[in-house]
Design a protein around this nucleic acid. Structure first.
Lengths: 242, 242
DNA sequence: GGGACTTTGTGAACAAACGAACAAGGTCGG
DNA sequence: CCGACCTTGTTCGTTTGTTCACAAAGTCCC
């Protein structure tokens, strides 16, 4: 099954085969799911069950997990604890990844307040802004630092991830400065196209985009509706929900 | 080129061929880009240029735009204004889509404060919570309404999109109630798997997931680094950036 | 008005992702 | 210890998405 010899002690290096992007994006979902079932004292889980809880297809779960080299046991399923260990390691969650939030406007402030990060191994280590009137002031427990201090912050605090929460205009410049300072993982909330060098990782969260996509399908639906009305078809299916 | 007869007056219905999901997700990016160039009094744009600004491949731009049936002019490019009109129509942005934010905790509050929605045709029409101690209190200009009032809010305010900003636990229930109230477009911020009936649209934004994916690649990178160090390879490429 | 030049729109090759189906492997009751 | 049963791991055909490459179509200068 596993093409490579299974040596007794893997270094964290272990390059197995490349994990597809789509799979990487699902690992956190499995992880969260597994944490939930673990807290219910479930020790073993089948791909079928995990699939159901994670909202995906069972074959996909098995294939995804097989990339981890993670052993399930045929006839039984996967050992929850073991799977969690493997997965955390693969995702690099065995250490903390300090985060700097750049741009302490509305969104940045919200993110800084949002406790969800520190809990999950991504402590907010610094707030950064380019606006001189903000730099030096306190926000919660943080003293806001200047964008140009990034290299120092990286050295001091080990910043590993930068979150861009600036207006669209400043986003590219911020990204450049982050990369220059050695931060090669960037999460961009600014509604702008940002590019980074190949060796850096960029992901984006675009709220307006999500809403516009919903709008697209929403419109389709209302078209469908008006069509149905025109055709005199009963729209009762709508009420059947819940 | 266009397989179907091009009738003179399209209704907004016009079902042409189905637009692939991946394309739908890019349309908002093109839209934003076009708005930018429009404000610079550019009247015409080539697929090449648009691709560059939108951060994608030019062939992809052309194929995407071809789904809109949008005419470019060979030898010239696309008319920016015309493209914007077509695209806005296709995305359903010719009308407003009132939004209800469910869950006025940290994240919900942040989203409510975040002005970015109303500007873009998604006015926040209501704030909803299930916590009796919050319901009835004011938040900014909004009086917080109870989750069970959703059907009334939909009727009153024409809520078209629901944003779930509750803790994970409540998310599925909220989704169910939204759908039951007739809201079939849902944006989920809660870190939980939520399912909706086929006729509803669900998109999710998962901050922890994004960070964990970055962590995955970040770890890879540091593995690469330590490998390189071990091998005595110079890591200068890192400094070449910026 | 004609020819050189530009840029679109799409066919076709390639690549990634998905899901069904099934053999291999392992458990567990008797 | 054996056979029935279960669940994994993987193969394979299908679908979806990306990219190249080029003919078709139109512009614009002379």
């Amino acid at each position: 099954m596993n093409k490579r010899t299974r040596s007794v002690a893997w270094g964290p290096v272990d390059r197995r085969r490349r994990i597809p992007e789509a799979t990487v994006a699902r690992l956190p979902v499995y992880l969260r799911t597994l944490l939930e079932v673990q807290s219910e004292d479930v020790t073993t889980i089948s791909s079928e069950r995990l699939a159901e809880l994670a909202g995906v297809n069972a074959a996909k779960v098995r294939k995804d997990l097989s990339y981890l080299g993670s052993y399930g046991t045929r006839g039984v399923g996967y050992d929850v604890d073991h799977l969690l260990v493997q997965m955390s390691r693969e995702l690099g969650l065995t250490r903390d990844w300090p985060v700097a939030i750049v741009g302490v406007g509305n969104l940045g402030a919200a993110l800084a307040n949002y406790g969800g990060f520190g809990d999950r191994g991504f402590p907010v280590a610094a707030l950064v802004d380019a606006d001189p009137s903000k730099v030096g002031t306190m926000f919660g427990d943080y003293k806001i630092r200047h964008l140009d201090e990034l290299p120092a912050l990286v050295a001091e605090l080990g910043i590993a991830i930068g979150i861009i929460a600036t207006p669209a205009v400043g986003a590219q410049e911020v990204a450049d400065k982050l990369v220059a300072a050695g931060v090669t993982s960037i999460l961009n909330f600014a509604p702008a196209v940002v590019t980074v060098p190949d060796h850096a990782q960029l992901r984006k969260v675009d709220l307006a985009l999500e809403l516009q996509v919903l709008s697209f399908y929403g419109q389709r639906e209302s078209i469908g509706e008006s069509l149905r009305e025109e055709l005199g078809v009963n729209a009762a299916s709508k009420e059947a929900v819940s």
